[in-house]
Protein backbone atom coordinates (compact mmCIF):
# COMPACT_ATOMS: atom_id res chain seq x y z
CA UNK A 1 0.00 0.00 0.00
CA UNK A 2 1.45 3.31 -1.06
CA UNK A 3 1.73 6.37 1.11
CA UNK A 4 -1.14 8.82 0.97
CA UNK A 5 -0.55 12.56 1.16
CA UNK A 6 -1.84 12.47 4.73
CA UNK A 7 0.70 9.76 5.62
CA UNK A 8 3.49 11.83 4.11
CA UNK A 9 2.39 14.88 6.06
CA UNK A 10 2.40 12.93 9.32
CA UNK A 11 5.77 11.40 8.51
CA UNK A 12 7.30 14.80 7.79
CA UNK A 13 5.86 16.14 11.04
CA UNK A 14 7.52 13.26 12.94
CA UNK A 15 10.84 13.65 11.14
CA UNK A 16 10.89 17.39 11.94
CA UNK A 17 10.89 16.67 15.69
CA UNK A 18 14.41 15.29 15.57
CA UNK A 19 17.78 16.89 14.86
CA UNK A 20 18.57 13.87 12.64
CA UNK A 21 15.91 12.24 10.43
CA UNK A 22 17.02 8.68 11.22
CA UNK A 23 15.68 9.10 14.77
CA UNK A 24 12.21 9.00 13.22
CA UNK A 25 12.69 5.36 12.24
CA UNK A 26 10.96 3.72 15.22
CA UNK A 27 8.07 6.22 15.24
CA UNK A 28 7.57 5.68 11.49
CA UNK A 29 7.61 1.89 11.91
CA UNK A 30 4.92 2.29 14.60
CA UNK A 31 2.98 4.53 12.22
CA UNK A 32 3.18 1.96 9.43
CA UNK A 33 2.02 -0.77 11.81
CA UNK A 34 -0.88 1.41 12.96
CA UNK A 35 -1.94 1.88 9.35
CA UNK A 36 -1.48 -1.64 7.96
CA UNK A 37 -1.81 -3.86 11.04
CA UNK A 38 1.79 -5.07 10.58
CA UNK A 39 5.03 -3.74 9.09
CA UNK A 40 4.80 -4.68 5.42
CA UNK A 41 7.86 -4.94 3.17
CA UNK A 42 6.43 -2.10 1.11
CA UNK A 43 6.22 0.08 4.19
CA UNK A 44 9.87 -0.59 4.98
CA UNK A 45 10.82 0.47 1.45
CA UNK A 46 8.73 3.63 1.79
CA UNK A 47 10.24 4.50 5.16
CA UNK A 48 13.73 3.90 3.81
CA UNK A 49 13.05 6.37 0.99
CA UNK A 50 11.68 8.98 3.41
CA UNK A 51 14.76 8.76 5.64
CA UNK A 52 17.33 8.21 2.89
CA UNK A 53 18.25 4.78 4.28
CA UNK A 54 18.47 1.39 2.61
CA UNK A 55 15.48 -0.96 3.02
CA UNK A 56 17.91 -3.52 4.43
CA UNK A 57 18.84 -1.18 7.25
CA UNK A 58 15.17 -0.55 8.04
CA UNK A 59 14.54 -4.31 8.10
CA UNK A 60 17.55 -4.79 10.37
CA UNK A 61 16.20 -2.31 12.91
CA UNK A 62 12.62 -3.51 12.59
CA UNK A 63 13.57 -7.13 13.26
CA UNK A 64 15.34 -6.16 16.49
CA UNK A 65 12.22 -4.95 18.31
CA UNK A 66 9.58 -7.38 19.55
CA UNK A 67 6.55 -5.08 19.16
CA UNK A 68 7.11 -4.69 15.42
CA UNK A 69 5.47 -7.57 13.52
CA UNK A 70 6.78 -8.49 10.10
CA UNK A 71 3.81 -10.69 9.24
CA UNK A 72 0.08 -10.28 9.79
CA UNK A 73 -0.87 -11.22 13.34
CA UNK A 74 -4.56 -10.47 13.54
CA UNK A 75 -6.31 -7.69 15.36
CA UNK A 76 -5.46 -8.56 18.97
CA UNK A 77 -2.05 -9.25 20.46
CA UNK A 78 -2.26 -10.86 23.89
CA UNK A 79 1.09 -10.57 25.68
CA UNK A 80 1.35 -12.90 28.65
CA UNK A 81 4.23 -12.37 31.08
CA UNK A 82 6.00 -15.51 32.28
CA UNK A 83 8.94 -13.86 34.00
CA UNK A 84 9.55 -14.91 37.58
CA UNK A 85 6.96 -13.01 39.65
CA UNK A 86 4.26 -13.90 37.15
CA UNK A 87 5.60 -17.44 36.78
CA UNK A 88 5.24 -18.18 40.50
CA UNK A 89 1.72 -16.72 40.35
CA UNK A 90 0.51 -18.86 37.43
CA UNK A 91 1.76 -16.90 34.41
CA UNK A 92 3.21 -19.91 32.61
CA UNK A 93 -0.06 -21.84 32.90
CA UNK A 94 -1.99 -18.79 31.77
CA UNK A 95 0.20 -18.49 28.68
CA UNK A 96 -0.05 -22.17 27.76
CA UNK A 97 -3.82 -22.28 28.21
CA UNK A 98 -4.48 -19.11 26.24
CA UNK A 99 -2.14 -20.19 23.47
CA UNK A 100 -3.97 -23.47 23.10
CA UNK A 101 -7.37 -21.80 23.25
CA UNK A 102 -6.63 -19.27 20.49
CA UNK A 103 -4.30 -21.42 18.37
CA UNK A 104 -6.86 -21.60 15.54
CA UNK A 105 -8.06 -18.00 15.81
CA UNK A 106 -6.35 -15.87 13.14
CA UNK A 107 -7.55 -12.71 14.86
CA UNK A 108 -5.79 -13.32 18.19
CA UNK A 109 -2.03 -13.76 18.69
CA UNK A 110 -1.07 -15.06 22.14
CA UNK A 111 2.60 -14.44 22.81
CA UNK A 112 4.91 -15.08 25.74
CA UNK A 113 6.64 -11.88 26.80
CA UNK A 114 9.26 -10.77 29.28
CA UNK A 115 8.39 -8.69 32.33
CA UNK A 116 5.89 -5.95 31.45
CA UNK A 117 6.28 -4.05 34.74
CA UNK A 118 2.89 -4.96 36.15
CA UNK A 119 4.16 -7.48 38.72
CA UNK A 120 1.87 -6.31 41.53
CA UNK A 121 -0.98 -7.70 39.40
CA UNK A 122 0.63 -11.08 38.63
CA UNK A 123 -0.03 -13.00 36.51
CA UNK A 124 -0.13 -9.95 34.28
CA UNK A 125 -0.94 -9.69 30.60
CA UNK A 126 -1.61 -7.03 28.02
CA UNK A 127 -4.12 -6.87 25.21
CA UNK A 128 -2.80 -4.54 22.54
CA UNK A 129 -0.73 -3.00 25.34
CA UNK A 130 -3.62 -2.30 27.71
CA UNK A 131 -2.64 -3.77 31.09
CA UNK A 132 -4.71 -6.55 32.67
CA UNK A 133 -4.34 -9.06 35.47
CA UNK A 134 -4.39 -10.95 37.64
CA UNK A 135 -6.55 -13.50 35.87
CA UNK A 136 -6.84 -17.19 35.10
CA UNK A 137 -7.43 -18.40 31.55
CA UNK A 138 -11.22 -18.05 31.80
CA UNK A 139 -10.91 -14.55 33.21
CA UNK A 140 -8.44 -13.53 30.52
CA UNK A 141 -10.62 -15.05 27.78
CA UNK A 142 -13.50 -13.02 29.16
CA UNK A 143 -11.50 -9.82 28.73
CA UNK A 144 -10.39 -10.84 25.24
CA UNK A 145 -14.08 -11.40 24.42
CA UNK A 146 -14.89 -7.87 25.55
CA UNK A 147 -12.39 -6.50 23.02
CA UNK A 148 -13.68 -8.83 20.31
CA UNK A 149 -17.26 -7.67 20.87
CA UNK A 150 -16.21 -4.04 21.05
CA UNK A 151 -17.24 -3.58 24.69
CA UNK A 152 -13.65 -2.50 25.24
CA UNK A 153 -11.97 -0.48 22.51
CA UNK A 154 -8.65 -2.02 21.51
CA UNK A 155 -5.55 0.00 20.79
CA UNK A 156 -3.65 -0.78 17.61
CA UNK A 157 -1.12 -3.60 17.86
CA UNK A 158 1.48 -0.86 18.30
CA UNK A 159 -0.41 0.35 21.37
CA UNK A 160 -1.66 3.53 19.75
CA UNK A 161 -5.03 4.82 20.87
CA UNK A 162 -7.55 4.44 18.03
CA UNK A 163 -8.40 8.12 18.48
CA UNK A 164 -4.85 8.98 17.43
CA UNK A 165 -4.98 6.94 14.20
CA UNK A 166 -6.34 8.90 11.22
Amino acid sequence: MGLTDADRGRAQEIIARYPHPKSALLPLLHLAQDRDGWVTPDAMVEIAALLDLTPALVLGVCSFYSMLKREPVGRLVVSVCTNVSCMVNGGSDLFEELRARYAADPDVLVEEVECIAHCDRAPAFQINYDFHGPADADGAAGVIGQYQRGDLVARTISGTSPAAVP
Binding site: H20, K22, A24, L26, H30, V61, F64, Y65, E114
Partner: peptide, 22 residues
Protein backbone atom coordinates in the same frame (compact mmCIF):
# COMPACT_ATOMS: atom_id res chain seq x y z
CA UNK B 1 9.99 8.85 21.90
CA UNK B 2 8.33 5.45 22.18
CA UNK B 3 10.41 2.30 22.22
CA UNK B 4 9.31 -0.80 20.37
CA UNK B 5 9.99 -3.73 22.70
CA UNK B 6 13.56 -4.27 23.83
CA UNK B 7 15.14 -4.61 27.30
CA UNK B 8 18.59 -3.37 26.37
CA UNK B 9 17.26 0.01 25.26
CA UNK B 10 17.17 0.64 29.01
CA UNK B 11 20.97 0.62 29.13
CA UNK B 12 22.02 4.24 28.83
CA UNK B 13 24.06 3.82 25.66
CA UNK B 14 21.61 1.27 24.24
CA UNK B 15 18.95 3.93 24.68
CA UNK B 16 21.03 6.41 22.68
CA UNK B 17 21.46 3.91 19.84
CA UNK B 18 17.74 3.25 19.84
CA UNK B 19 16.94 6.97 19.88
CA UNK B 20 19.17 7.42 16.84
CA UNK B 21 17.06 4.90 14.92
CA UNK B 22 19.34 1.93 15.27
Amino acid sequence: HRGAGCYIAGDETGLLSSLEGE
